[in-house]
Write a protein that binds this DNA or RNA. Structure first.
Length: 438
DNA sequence: TTAGGGTTAG
């Protein structure tokens, strides 16, 4: 990506081609969508030196990308900078910031920002309101979301399919799928066309409640409504079917999916593998696994991970271990999650030395244990009978810098008291406390 | 040239 910015620089400096704001905007948008926000930001700085000065659109592009990268503070710095320079933010800029703040539960700041924009005669539109509705729903605050919905209608903004889908998801997350279904019917009544997202939300709701007959019924309804199930629909139902042990149904649906022209993506692969393993079909899982590992290198990461987890659950530690070793041999560096799954498996099995070895490998690969590692180890120890032996490992981790959160701490305390390590606990408390303060 | 939604391992 650096290459692109070098080319841009060259084009600008040598005046081979005069880039206007729109061209800069297009390039910066592309960079941001590919995750190169910093490069986009340097391009904005380059613009300042040229004839085409940064405008509202290019600032908004970078502000939005920073929010999506969860760098809301940096986004606000840029937002303040543009205001200082007299470049007026618009409804896009404000909406991106509102969305960023919502994701961090900064409700007071959201309110202030909405006030600010309204004072400037910039009014929230269907996008802005839908972001708010979605944020409330995802946090289980459906009543607040409905209130936002009413406000937007009052202000003359029409909720659309995205707004209603968010509300449906809110009800589904609370397990009130029948209410969600009624939302779907009423949105059709008022003339808002539902889409495949609407159905996927409902299907997922039923699957999570293990109501697979209802989910399958909805799946049939999709085609009757003139819509087509997509890869997400299939993945959701496949997962649900495996969850309730309907392996044959899953296999049939998997074939149906491929016949409909959808090749399995990385998630479907993981669902199939995990589903087989969970239901004890090791051979079927292995055969799929071997077929795919030849085809798709990209898919390795997730498949190995799922594979590892599944293998541990059915006590095939030797197979899990060989898969993990294979990751190294093909030059893939496992991420913290995959390490965690493996460390957990080893702890449950009481294989402390191997877990230690793995933690050392983790450090060699500059992959630090995180909260989840600690959590999993403590959990593994609680489930295991070889607690004393495994204590050694835990002590080593604690001494190396235990990343403790509240949950881990309480589990740890429970464990230490259980196995009569009260004195060790007393010694550790000041240090754990200090780390927690940081 | 800019903003909103669904599946996804411990």
């Amino acid at each position: 990506m650096e290459k692109i910015s070098m080319q841009q620089r060259k084009l600008v400096k040598e005046k081979i081609c005069k880039m206007d704001e729109v061209m800069f905007g297009t390039v910066m948008n592309g960079l941001c969508k590919q995750g190169h926000t910093q490069t986009a930001l340097s391009l904005l700085r380059i613009m300042e030196q040229g004839d085409a000065k940064p405008n509202t659109v290019v600032y908004s592009i970078v502000v939005d990308a920073l929010c999506k990268d969860q760098m809301v503070g940096a986004a606000f710095n840029l937002f303040n900078e543009m205001k200082r320079k007299g470049i007026t933010p618009n409804v896009h800029t404000y909406s991106s910031l509102v969305d960023g703040l919502c994701k961090f539960d900064q409700w007071e700041e959201v309110r202030l920002l909405l006030d600010e924009m309204t004072h400037l005669n910039i009014f929230p539109n269907v996008h802005t309101f839908s972001m708010l509705v979605d944020a409330f729903c995802k946090k289980g605050m459906v009543e607040d979301a409905v209130e936002v919905l009413n406000v937007m209608i009052q202000k003359g903004e029409h909720p659309d399919v995205v707004t209603f889908n968010a509300i449906m998801e809110g009800y589904c997350l609370r397990g009130e799928i029948d209410v969600a279904r009624r939302v779907l019917d009423s949105m059709i009544d008022i003339g808002v066309k539902c889409d495949i997202f609407s159905y996927n939300i409902l299907v997922n709701g039923y699957c999570k409640q293990k109501k697979l007959d209802e989910a399958m019924h909805l799946y049939c309804e999709i085609s009757q409504k003139g819509l087509k199930p997509d890869i997400v629909t299939y993945s959701t139902i496949l997962q649900g079917l495996f969850e309730v042990g309907r392996v044959e149904c899953s296999e049939n649906l998997f074939t149906e999916m491929q016949n409909a022209g959808h090749s399995p993506d990385i998630y479907t692969c993981g669902i199939m593998l995990h589903g087989y393993l969970k239901n004890g079909h090791v051979e079927r899982a292995m055969s799929l696994f071997h077929r795919w590992e030849k085809q798709k290198e990209d898919a390795y990461i997730l498949i190995y991970n799922r594979g590892n987890d599944g293998f541990f659950k059915i006590q095939k530690l030797d197979k899990a271990r060989s898969i993990f070793d294979k990751l190294y041999s093909v030059g893939l560096h496992p991420d913290v999650i995959r390490y965690n799954v493996t460390v957990n498996g080893l702890c449950i099995e009481g294989l402390v030395d191997e877990a230690k070895e793995l933690l050392r490998k983790m450090e060699d690969n500059r992959c630090s244990p995180d909260n989840a590692t600690s959590n999993l180890i403590v959990n593994g120890l609680l489930k295991s009978n070889k607690t004393n032996e495994a204590m050694t490992l835990l002590k080593e981790i604690i001494q190396r810098g235990f990343p403790a959160d509240r949950v881990t701490m309480s589990l740890l305390i429970e464990l230490l008291l259980l196995i009569g390590e009260g004195p060790f606990l007393l010694n550790m408390i000041p240090e754990l406390h200090l780390r927690n303060e940081k």
